[in-house]
Design a protein around this nucleic acid. Sequence first.
DNA 1: ACCTGAACACCGTTCAAGT
DNA 2: ACCTGAACACCGTTCAAGT
Lengths: 205, 205
Amino acid sequence: MSAALTLLDESGPSAASIRGIAAKVGVAPNAVYTYFPDKAAVVKGVVERLLGEVDHTASGDDAGSWRDRVAALAVELRRALLAHPGAVPLMIGGPMDGPHALALNERLLELLADAGLDPADAARAAYLLIVYAFGSIAMEVADQHGVAPMPPEQDRIAARLDAFAAIPATHLPRTAAAATVMAGYVSEAQYVWGLHRVLDGISTA
Amino acid sequence: MSAALTLLDESGPSAASIRGIAAKVGVAPNAVYTYFPDKAAVVKGVVERLLGEVDHTASGDDAGSWRDRVAALAVELRRALLAHPGAVPLMIGGPMDGPHALALNERLLELLADAGLDPADAARAAYLLIVYAFGSIAMEVADQHGVAPMPPEQDRIAARLDAFAAIPATHLPRTAAAATVMAGYVSEAQYVWGLHRVLDGISTA
DNA sequence: ACCTGAACACCGTTCAAGT
DNA sequence: ACCTGAACACCGTTCAAGT
């Protein structure tokens, strides 16, 4: 059942309608209410399903430093979420308190405890990392959804350059220059760079 | 006209419907299409209106360090957005490329240039700060919208404690402990703490 | 230019009824 | 328990028509 849900947001961008799901499963719209009390519950199910796709073993059990392991987990999270970009906007819509969300948080807290942070600092640092990861991924999806079905990265860079060419360089000189700079970066590189700045900040806490 | 838009999302949480707006203005639903081509344009207008509410002078012209000025701007941004919590989910829905969004970005780049960052680092750092601020505010709104119309902070802390009391402490010991820790923090304090960790990270770049 | 009434193809959700 | 048909109160959007 919930398998059909993810199949749906693969096809449509924000076509996560109850009626659409029912049609895809080949059933009447109201039959969905046998399994879910309302649409919010369906969305929650999709979010949990997606978070379950995150491979926690990506942060190896004894691999490198705690920083590398946190970074690997964050990159794996991004990979899992960007596999279904249409579902990403649904995550920030409501609180993430399902089992898979909590398991991810637990894993993160373990890694931060290994880093030597006391529980209070680890709690705040974990929240910071989660805010950064989900915020970054959500903005990435928001900035690109408009061009049709997922053009390759190099084409999107060109599109970004075109879009920012309209920025009035005389009135907003720094923004125009920054746009040129950012257009040269691959999204994942920016994500990883920001992640390491956050990790730097946490290390000083 | 756009004044009526913000008035609307003050009243309703996500009642930003075209028909609802039209009713509030006392006009037929389709009359809205005289001013906006479609709903996306209306949303864009609301977002821009809200970003225009940010007081750029909050980061004083010659006050303290560049860090204090960036922090003041970020806190002012949070204040402006949380004044209309219902509109926050609309911001991450689409790209923010309006005049006020660009002006905010320009101001941020100025402050980072004052900090001595070269244009390339300033561009990436500005994006990181924007991701953090909007991501943090969006998650803050997402975590609390469910309890009716904005209970005071101290009540929400109690609610958070109740919500996390259900966390299985045996299976997720660190998450349970972290939840207790986080419940003791005021949202703005966590926001400012994370902001300074990000600023620490930027300083090391 | 600005507004209306009426209609189109959608929503989420409920209710009574069937197996 | 699981599904259906029919209906309710909504959406965003279009179109022809009025001033």
